[in-house]
Design a binder for these strands. Structure first.
Lengths: 334, 334
DNA sequence: TTGAAAGCGCTAACAC
DNA sequence: GTGTTAGCGCTTTCAA
């Protein structure tokens, strides 16, 4: 298309004067500036991102990797981060990684190639593979989960919600409602976050003097459908609980949906608690743990900017407290 | 960090040979190639995106602008597009524009600066402002809505679902169920899509010999909350309908939620139909119009690739037919 | 098969 | 206040 040389020729000035006029940096007379801007408009000029970046080493873009856009949970996080990044003149580009490590690695590679100045990285499965890629990139990265390498040689920050504590809150709440048999619908326990949530359930039952029976643990994949499938298994099992803690709202919704389809009453037959406290949990009157997504995003973006603009190089971490929001789905004795 | 010169020095070859070895294009002996790749690994090399782009004029990235990530509606579209783009080795970067034209213009500007090779552009409000920016960019763009400039000088494609027809399907269905007073919960009628949907309702009532009374039109903003608010207005109005057509599922959900909160029975008191046919509509047994999001995304990506890779320059458009999915919320006489 | 060299379009230090 | 110039890191043509 058009470039500064074309404009320079048009107005009879040198390319550097044109660059100065356009950028606003460096000396340039009012008269020249006016001519340049006019010519730029005429030839429909806009700077080439790649050329700018190659020189300035700045893209003013942040990559935001999320495993799952369909899950309303991430909305708050994105909003929180976006609000901060916008203030610094940064654009947020979302990368949908589909819970897939290959996709994550692709985006880490894009970061490494300096397609963005930094990355906010959400994943359900931080592991040796993606973390070492993050470290190798040597680029500013903030995780939205807890992760510390064994050898403590991490180049990233993290801000995390204490999900372990969150599941404990939900579990304790059901215990307090008088439930003695409380099932847990979680995800793949080999994934870090899933394991944490599972542990919260288990430990809280132990704290309460109850038995965290493994036959009460059901594995879903954080979708409505998997919650639905677990519900069927639970109802038809030989060890039917009275309380249900689901590791996210979608699975809780799936559970409730199965009950609706089969004449089972919530909270009469099952007291149900989910996690994430999305708008949908309020529609369905679902007791849920507020994971304070917006604060996570906000803090993540702030940490990132400290590295990108402030040049901080040491690791910083932030912990955020979850909150329980009680609604009808768990109130048995009313 | 590291570049091809560093590698060249390390292995005692020229930068151009290193470049050939790395890219796989051009001649290079097996031996040299091996040495280069090894050295590259050693110095933790990865190419600089900006430099590559500056030469090659290719980013291998597509920008995907969506007004609202919180709305599950877009999930299918993104998935459909992503599946196609992936096959071509392209990355999809999502840009969340918050229903905000300023954000849209920012992303169009990023495209214009060639931050990506093309753009899929979703908006509820295609207008002179954003369309002329799209045209001015002269970059490959596909809209997911119908839009033709009066003067027919468009540089973009579009693929659209016939929402007008969709609302007609929903409206006709309620008419067929015997309803005579059917309200419409829509969005801001100044937005093109909102107006189309409104027209579908209006025209179908007229086709059915009914009166499209303006007092039966309620304005929301496509959120659950606005559906809830409209429900309250509808219930308390002096002209209470028996059928409700909502311009999307979220507003229908809001409507249903209000009813739930106030002892009003669906479908007994109101027959409700929404649009988008998301997973949530099936949870709530909501009759809804399937907008075939995945096909939209798929077709949009294909059109885009025809321009980006195939060099097509003339305009192409694709129309997709909606489908009505009937569920309990609208079946009055069962 | 390899290397030299000329850019891609912009920035910024430096000289005028 | 303006112009010259030397890159940024890669690609690619052309000559060797």
């Amino acid at each position: 298309m058009s470039n500064i040389y074309e404009i320079a020729k048009k107005v009879g000035l040198s390319p550097s004067t044109v660059a100065r006029a356009l950028s606003g940096r460096g000396y340039c007379s009012e008269e020249s500036r006016k001519k340049v801007l006019e010519a730029a408009k005429e030839v429909n000029y806009s700077p080439t991102h790649a050329a700018k970046t190659l020189k300035s080493k700045r893209t003013n873009k942040i990559l935001f990797c999320i495993p799952d856009i369909y899950n309303p949970f991430y909305f708050g996080m994105i909003k929180g981060a976006n609000d901060v990044l916008e203030k610094y003149g940064y654009y947020t580009l979302l990368c949908y990684t589909k819970h897939n490590i290959e996709e994550e690695l692709k985006m880490i590679e894009a970061l490494r190639e300096k397609y963005g100045d930094g990355m906010i990285f959400v994943s359900f499965n931080f592991c040796e593979k993606n973390i070492s890629a993050v470290n190798a990139s040597k680029m500013p990265v903030v995780l939205t989960n807890r992760y510390d390498s064994p050898r403590g040689e991490d180049y990233f920050d993290y801000v995390y919600i204490d999900t372990y504590k969150g599941v404990q809150l939900a579990t304790r709440h059901l215990v307090d409602q008088g439930h003695r048999k409380i099932a847990f619908i979680g995800g793949n326990l080999e994934e870090q976050t899933s394991f944490e949530r599972y542990s919260g359930w288990k430990d809280e039952l132990i704290n309460s003097g109850l038995d965290p029976d493994d036959s009460l643990v059901y594995e879903g994949d954080y979708t409505i459908d998997s919650g639905y499938a677990c519900a069927e298994k639970i109802v038809k099992s030989s060890n039917v609980p009275t309380g249900i803690v689901a590791a996210n709202d979608l699975m809780a919704i799936g559970f409730i949906r199965y009950c609706g389809d089969n004449g089972i009453k919530i909270p009469h037959d099952f007291a149900v608690a989910g996690m994430d406290n999305t708008d949908f949990s309020s529609v369905l009157k679902l007791t849920s743990v507020d994971m304070r997504q917006e604060e996570i995003g906000l803090n993540a973006a702030s940490l990132l900017m400290e590295r990108v603009l402030g040049g901080r190089t040491y690791k910083k971490t932030i912990r955020i407290e979850p909150r329980l929001v009680v609604r009808e789905s768990s109130i048995t004795n009313k």
